[in-house]
Every structure is written in C-alpha cells, then in structure tokens.
C-alpha cells in the first residue's frame, strides 16, 4: 500500500463479495470460532488481514470488520466476540448458514526474515495471532505468545488457540497468571532481535509499545476501528499516527509499533 513500505507489499486485497457456507462453528462462552468455506479468500489471505462480514437478517446495515483467525486450503476461520448487536448475531451462526464476506482486506503482518517472534494479544485482539503464529511456525520461526483476558468468561477464547508456547493471564486470576500481559512479558526471557506483534485494547497497546521500546525491540501492531466501507473509500476509520491520519482499513490494520499513538 502507498506509504506503508514497512508492511507487506505483496498481500492482495479483494472487495468482491463471496457467499460463504459455515462448515464448522464452535461456541466458547461469548465467543464463536466460525469456519467458512471461502476458497477465493483463503488463497489470497495473509495474517493480519481482515474481512467485512454482512450480518444476516433485517436491521443491520454496515458490515463488521473481523480479522482472519486462520486461512488454510479452501477455508477461513473467524474468532468473533459478541460485543454489540451485530457481532452477537454472528456468534450465533450455525453450520450450514451462508454469510456474505468480502476480503481479504487491509495490510498484513510482515513476517519475512523473522526468526524469533513474540505475539501479544488482549481479549478479542488475540484473534489475528493464531494465523500469524501458524505462518511464522511454518517458516521455521520460534514463536511465543502471551494472551491476556479480563476474566474467566473472556478466557474461554483460549480454547480456540493452538500455539505451542502460550502463556495466559487474566485480570481476575481465574485462568493462568493473575494480572495483565505485561506481567507475562516481564517473566519471559526474550531473545535479542525478537519481533513483537501486538493486538488488543488501546491501554494494552500503549503498554506493550513502552515495553518494546524499553527492551530495544521492534514490532508491529494491528489496530481496530469503527468502519463503514472497509475498502478505503469513506475515511471513517482513521487513526492518528506518526505519518498523520491513516485509514485502519487501507494503510492498516497492521502498522509499525513505533508509528502509532495509542
């Protein structure tokens, strides 16, 4: 994408709509892992990219931007959290339902040349990290993940992850270590030159950004924003960055960790 030379140059975006059948649905508390048959999306996708999903039924207008949880062969998977009316409806999708999906969209996590990767996620922000871990591991990188959740209910999402070196924290101490991902990071032995990948709520991004600078590391962050078009037209999803206001849907969602101002 123009102006974002540090992120994937070779990822492809696609605005056309695919009608995708739900081939598997796993419900984890307020989350759902939805597997969709979407060969054209799966073949183009890269970790960090997202799709725009039409909420089935009357009374929903805008599509919901949802990052790719995985993409393999002819299928993509989405990890969806019931947060508002629309996303709650998506978590109730069942096997056999058909949903309209556009994508892949947005920038991808750069992975080339990465040998040590530290993935840091908070809440639903953990979603793009599984796909990233899969690709990094396939390329031979050493991948460690630290995921943080608010409470026991939110930590149900951990069940969707299959990252080998995975540590979990909950703020209420019900699952994993009591505290935040920052407590997990402090306990890790991080190799020099490790690339940090972060996605989560704004306070977490700010904290991870400070920690990364302090450790002398570099990294990337995936941001989320309210979107209307998801395809670069409306300028509704801008965030402030060191490069000025940039669109999360076009220049992002993946940015360099040192250029965002959470």
């Amino acid at each position: 994408m123009s102006g974002s030379g540090q992120t994937h140059d070779d990822h492809r975006q696609w605005a056309e709509t695919s009608h995708c059948r739900v081939s598997a649905a796993r419900h984890l508390g307020g989350f759902a892992v939805l597997e969709l048959i979407a060969p054209r999306i799966a073949r183009r996708a890269a970790p960090g990219q997202f799709v725009m999903v039409t909420v089935p039924g009357e009374g929903y207008l805008l599509r919901r931007p949802i990052s790719l949880f995985s993409a393999e062969a002819d299928c993509i998977a989405l990890l969806v959290e019931a947060r508002g009316r629309g996303s709650e409806r998506l978590t109730r999708l069942e096997v056999g339902d058909v949903v309209d999906v556009a994508g892949p969209l947005g920038s991808a996590f750069p992975t080339q040349g990465v040998t040590n990767a530290l993935l840091v996620g908070g809440g639903i922000g953990c979603a793009p990290l599984q796909y990233l871990a899969d690709e990094l591991a396939a390329a031979g990188a050493h991948v460690t993940a630290a995921l943080g959740f608010r409470d026991f209910r939110a930590a149900r999402a951990v069940g969707a992850f299959t990252i080998e070196r995975l540590s979990v924290a909950t703020e209420d101490g019900s699952v994993g270590r009591a505290g935040t991902v920052l407590h997990l990071l402090a306990a890790l032995d991080v190799a020099p030159g490790t690339t940090v990948y972060a996605c989560g709520p704004t306070p977490m991004i700010a904290a991870v950004q400070r920690w990364t600078f302090h450790e002398g590391l570099r990294g990337y962050v995936s941001l989320e924003a309210h979107m209307a078009c998801g395809t670069g037209s409306c300028h509704g999803c801008v965030v402030d960055t060191a490069r000025g206001k940039l669109r999360v849907c076009s220049e992002g969602p993946v940015f360099r960790l040192d250029e965002v101002t959470p």
């Binding site: 309210h226 409306c234 999803c237 206001k245």
Partner: peptide, 15 residues
C-alpha cells in the same frame, strides 16, 4: 485532515 476519530458508526436503520 478531517475530524478526530471516531468518525462513523451504525444507528438504527442508518449510518
């Protein structure tokens, strides 16, 4: 440069 975010959201039957 436009307005500060957030800039857009859905409303009942509208944007």
């Amino acid at each position: 440069t436009g307005n500060p975010p957030p800039r857009v959201t859905e409303t009942p039957s509208g944007v």
